[in-house]
Nucleic acid binder design. Structure first.
Length: 305
DNA sequence: TTCCAGGAGAGAG
DNA sequence: CTCTCTCATGGA
């Protein structure tokens, strides 16, 4: 990987990428904050707007602020998970024809390492909710309580700090369309603002401890805790079991109704230590092929064989 | 109108 | 431990 710097100090390139697809990575449901304009993606990361465009094996990145090239590239590589050898991870989890199809169709999709607080808040809001509404709630919270940013005519906002949401109160959070989840988000913001939950400490502990600590927060169960562990903390053994993943394992793999425990046990032994990556490819494939894991469709498909 | 969405909590059995 | 019911909201 080689870095170039142009006369415009805010534009940088990351060249010679291997096994990376920006579109699949940013549009696979793990982040709610990226907007596509033409072929570029605009988003807010660590307090600045980033504009990212992929051309072949090169990323062209514009930032709304001056960047120290070396530090910025290191941080962005971590954010996009570029430091991992994706091919070897996918080789481990590619154990059957079903996931092989998902891996090949979405080759290059990476699991992000997103900002911790924003990820905690986002997935608290995700429970019993749909993608479009989750995005609009996060946008609304940011517009009202975040910091305004602008870059070449594109306007966006930082996600509000825990202290900010703690200060504005439940009613203002509720007014952003959160529904009954307003209390959960406000409580989480308070726990972090008053130091009961220390985010930097959470980043240092292993997967079981991190998951356990997160589940102490009201409104965070196993699924949301696993999303945070996987999409922010880099714990690839985390397996968020949502309605899609449940359906996939019940119809394709276990072929019966199964409890959360049964699905976790099977998936862990079947896919191994990188089960989180397996989950992401299966999830995104199912999202793009709604009938793929449909029980009726599966029965039909089996008959043809 | 009813059902569903990257669920969690409370309560019952 | 497992099952069920409820919790706002908006789009299909």
């Amino acid at each position: 990987m080689k870095i170039d710097k142009f006369t415009n100090q805010r534009q940088m390139c990351i060249r010679h990428l291997s096994d990376f697809n920006l579109k699949y990575t940013l549009e696979s449901g793990q982040s709610f904050r990226w907007n596509r304009v033409d072929d570029s993606y605009y988003g807010v990361v660590e307090g600045r707007i980033l504009k990212i465009l992929q051309r072949g094996n090169t990323l062209i990145i514009d930032s709304s602020q001056y960047e120290d090239e070396a530090i910025f590239t290191s941080h962005l590589s971590h954010y996009l998970d570029l430091h991992r050898e994706l091919a070897s991870i996918l080789a481990v989890v590619n154990v059957d024809a079903y996931i092989d199809r998902a891996i090949n169709q979405f080759w290059g999709m990476r699991i992000l390492n997103q900002e911790l607080w924003e990820t905690i808040a986002s997935f608290i809001l995700s429970q019993n909710n749909n993608m479009g509404r989750i995005r609009s709630i996060i946008r609304s919270l940011s517009e009202r309580f975040g910091q305004r940013l602008e870059f070449e005519g594109y306007v966006d906002y930082t996600f509000p700090l825990p202290q900010t949401l703690a200060d504005v109160g439940v009613d203002e959070i509720f007014a952003c369309g959160t529904g009954y989840r307003a209390n959960y988000l406000w409580n989480a913001a308070n726990n972090i603002a008053n130091g009961e939950l220390v985010l930097d400490a959470l980043k240092q502990v292993d997967y079981p401890d991190a998951k356990h600590e997160l589940m102490k927060l009201e409104g965070i169960g196993e699924k949301v805790a696993d999303c945070i562990c996987l999409f922010s903390l880099g714990h690839l053994a985390a397996l968020p079991v949502d309605v899609w993943i449940k359906r996939i394992f019940e119809t394709i793999y276990l072929r019966r109704r199964a409890t959360l425990r049964e699905i976790q046990e099977f998936a862990k032994s079947y896919f191994g230590e990188f089960v989180g990556y397996a989950q992401q490819y299966l999830f995104h494939y199912a999202q793009n092929h709604p009938k793929w894991a449909d029980a009726e469709h599966l029965a039909l498909r089996d008959k043809k064989k």
